[in-house]
Design a binder for these strands. Sequence first.
DNA 1: ATGGCTTTGTGAAATCTTTCACAATGTAGT
DNA 2: ACTACATTGTGAAAGATTTCACAAAGCCAT
Lengths: 211, 211
Amino acid sequence: MHSPTKHIAESTVRRLSLYLRFLEEFEARGQTTVSSGELARSGGTTSAQVRKDLSFFGSFGKRGLGYGVKDLISSIREILGLEQPWPVIIIGAGKIGAALAQYRGFTSRGFHVVGVYDADPSKVGMQLGALAVRSDKEIERDIAAHKPRIAVLAVPADAAQPMVDRVVAAGMHAVLSFAPAPLHAPHGVTIRAVNMATELEILAYSLTHGV
Amino acid sequence: MHSPTKHIAESTVRRLSLYLRFLEEFEARGQTTVSSGELARSGGTTSAQVRKDLSFFGSFGKRGLGYGVKDLISSIREILGLEQPWPVIIIGAGKIGAALAQYRGFTSRGFHVVGVYDADPSKVGMQLGALAVRSDKEIERDIAAHKPRIAVLAVPADAAQPMVDRVVAAGMHAVLSFAPAPLHAPHGVTIRAVNMATELEILAYSLTHGV
DNA sequence: ATGGCTTTGTGAAATCTTTCACAATGTAGT
DNA sequence: ACTACATTGTGAAAGATTTCACAAAGCCAT
């Protein structure tokens, strides 16, 4: 239970994260039980999809009744690894980096920002919420000392790959990049890239070719 | 040419956007011709994938030689609908909205921000680059008058769905949301949601379960 | 307890996406 | 003009994901 034998598709993990959000809403409304159909309706998918997604990790429901809201919340949190805290560093204290550093939704699920770095000396020392921006020269030392698990990159495109190489060399295994640049990393390191321009271009495509 | 008969997968459109980025790099370096293999290597995919993606829209290469860099750039820009400008409005002038409004990579590909709105009177009038924040009450009038094609939402989770309903009622057909909330829209309206928390949770999953 | 109703969990089928593999076509050198 | 070589475009195969459909299991009312 909770440890799938075969590889799980990213789309499944993404939906689990979504289900978790709905379940928390159901919990806040005091609902104790939820069916795959209800979850599916909230998330724009099908009940079979919900059941299949969960079935990769075990059997969490009661036939005839559905899923216990609180139980399923714990189960999904455990599946996603959210029962432990995830220290995160943010690299790049420009507009986006600064906004992320102070973004509250960020910290809510166990992710908490433990450091913000910038290469620009004029930004170093700047206060962002509770944190002061540190020099990028401290990144390696801080990674070694505090073992943050995820690095969020909000640096210019041409600085992104060199910075990935640095944090990976320093022992980082997960990177979330907002830089508009494709990134490569060695096996064993997970990189995710969010590219605003690409998202807009997909919208432009769908507007251009009809929905 | 340029108008596929069958439905095109989002993954294909996403890769086209990526290829465009690489092609522009090749162009900047003065390269006039590129093979599917070279494009594949930059993008972490396979040459067959590149050729298949393009083949949905027509035949753009020369056998034995590859693709003309400039020609392929125009072709992909046309496929994605980037030969025309795309006026965009940003709703929500908090940290994220303000950062997006001033994000330069945003405007580079024909997307340009023509309005920023917020419901908070204390934010209205605030200057963000060349634009002043306007009251959310003006959204409907401005959509009718200036016909922006895409709305970017950077509002709190509970304000997101009502705001989608408002802009859709006012005639908007495409929304890019950064709100941590699942959104629904009628048929004919495309919604894309970028959810920072979900991206981090996918990283947490991959760190928890090994890569 | 029994019967009717609901809902899960899951193989099998259908659909969608990627990869393979190769004929067709064009280049470049001689 | 010919030959050797490179590369595209694309059906067909393989692989991945989603949907179907139904037996199994448990709830609830009587």
